[in-house]
Design a protein around this nucleic acid. Structure first.
Length: 435
DNA sequence: TCTGGGGTCCTAGGACCC
DNA sequence: TCTGGGGTCCTAGGACCC
């Protein structure tokens, strides 16, 4: 029996420091040790800052025009973003991490969770492993990373956050094997909003209830967290106490919605211009839709004026266009989106932004949906069995095993997979089967 | 003058049905 | 005809994340 901490449940979070800036530096060493920011679409906002820029107090998302003076003064270099490059670098990091664990979750473009349980044979301590990860990624991609270890994902994320604070941690922090005196001291000074999923609002509420440190949050009884703050915070408490509630998600589920939207560089007034933009956003959204083998059953299209121009007349609206027959047909999707746009468009406003949001369902689920629609479904238990009978007679025994029905939306277990189906007309079911 | 884009989950409240 | 409770479904909006 090994006593190595890695024989316990153990997660790691590996996160690339200042990811976009680090990617740019990997290809242009002149940027190293310089003040660098990467800007969003239209070069409007800062989406990444080098350490040097962070030290100047520049916050994430600061508009570039507000930085121009500071930039001149401190010779800040601003770069337009290059997402193709960042995606490629992200894949390279992924490849390297697979050598350290077969179980890796892509949490975001610059963060990976690793499940390390049972890997104790290879490493004497997590710290060794963490340093090894840092060195190899640095060597093979030039990217700097920090590594956090914990027995839940929330703790690993917190550890990663702590590891970034130089210099004593040297980029790696293991909360699981930290001496308890040190751990308690650390958690009692960490503010509660440093915890993953505690944002501005929630930290205010927690503070108002006297919970201002991570330690206080961890030590508040579950029942209290549940009543005062709901299920999410209750789960958070468990995670901080080392009870894992969040599993590693290695296979990324298909997106439930696909958004494609953009701010205009210049304000736009006319419907034809907006239509052109919407059609183009829809094309790229539909491409993603096909890529994940989904179809779309509703499209939301929205437009808005520029809320920062407070003297301008403001207008924002959206419309959801349902597609009774879910589809991935690009021409149909564009038609539906343009129809929605036409409904919400009003003349006389200067528009800043528009976009589409596609609700996605799995192609296979769509086939099942049509199967159920063929027979109808509903909330009349007297007819439930006959529907099951019909479907199983026609498609073979046990095609349909569980069938829970709601008024409009129902749920069916089909070959081990639960899928939604939509009620059309229950009365289509022949009355003869009701007996 | 110039203020990002893409996601998930939860909740409240209205509509509707029995 | 009037009234009420209980349930489901849908949507919008808020909060959070990177």
């Amino acid at each position: 029996m090994s006593n190595s901490p890695l024989s316990q449940p153990m997660f790691a979070l590996v996160d690339v420091n200042n990811f976009y800036v680090s990617c740019e530096r990997a290809f242009n060493p002149n940027l190293i040790n310089r003040s660098v920011v990467v800007l969003s679409n239209n070069d409007s906002c800062t989406v990444a800052r080098s350490h040097e820029v962070q030290a100047l107090g520049v916050k994430m998302g600061t508009p570039w025009f507000k930085l121009k003076d500071l930039a001149k003064q401190h010779h800040i270099i601003a770069l337009s973003s290059n997402y193709t490059l960042y995606g490629d670098m992200s894949d390279r990091v992924m490849t390297i991490l697979r050598d350290f664990s077969p179980h890796v979750e892509v949490y975001s473009i610059d963060e990976r969770f690793l499940d390390l349980q049972g890997l104790n044979k290879f490493w004497s301590t997590p710290m060794d492993m963490g340093q090894s990860i840092r060195q190899r990624i640095r060597q093979w991609t030039s990217l700097p990373v920090c590594v956090g270890f914990g027995i839940t994902k929330t703790l690993a994320k917190l550890a990663n956050h702590i590891a970034k604070k130089p210099p004593e941690f040297n980029g790696v922090c293991d909360l699981a094997s930290m001496p308890s005196a040190q751990l308690e001291a650390l958690l009692s000074v960490l503010e509660v909003d440093e915890v993953w999923s505690v944002g501005r609002q929630l930290s205010q509420h927690l503070n108002a209830a006297g919970i201002s440190t991570v330690k206080a949050l961890r030590d508040t009884p579950s029942s209290c967290l549940r009543t005062k703050f709901g299920v999410v915070v209750e789960r958070l408490g468990y995670e901080l106490r080392g009870v894992s509630c969040l599993a590693l998600e290695e296979v990324s589920a298909p997106r439930k919605q696909i958004i494609s939207s953009r701010s205009f560089g210049q304000l736009v007034n006319s419907l034809p211009e907006l239509s052109e933009a919407v059609a183009s956003y829809m094309s790229s959204a539909a491409e993603k839709l096909r890529h994940q083998h989904s179809v779309c059953n509703a499209i939301q299209v929205f437009i808005q004026t520029n809320p920062f121009r407070q003297h301008d007349k403001q207008y924002s609206n959206s419309m959801t266009v349902p597609l009774p027959n879910a589809s991935g047909d690009i021409r149909l999707l564009i038609r539906a989106a343009l129809f929605g746009l036409k409904c919400i468009y009003r003349q006389g406003y200067a528009y800043k932004k528009t976009g589409v949001i596609l609700s996605c369902i799995d192609s296979a689920a769509k086939q099942q949906e049509s199967l159920f629609e063929l027979y109808g479904a509903g909330d009349r238990s007297a007819r439930l069995m006959c529907v099951l009978d019909q479907i199983n007679q026609r498609y073979g025994r046990d095609t349909l095993s569980v069938f829970s029905t709601g008024k409009r939306k129902s749920w069916a277990m089909h070959r081990g997979k639960v899928s939604p189906c939509y009620t059309t007309n229950w009365n289509d079911v022949p009355i003869a089967y009701a007996h």
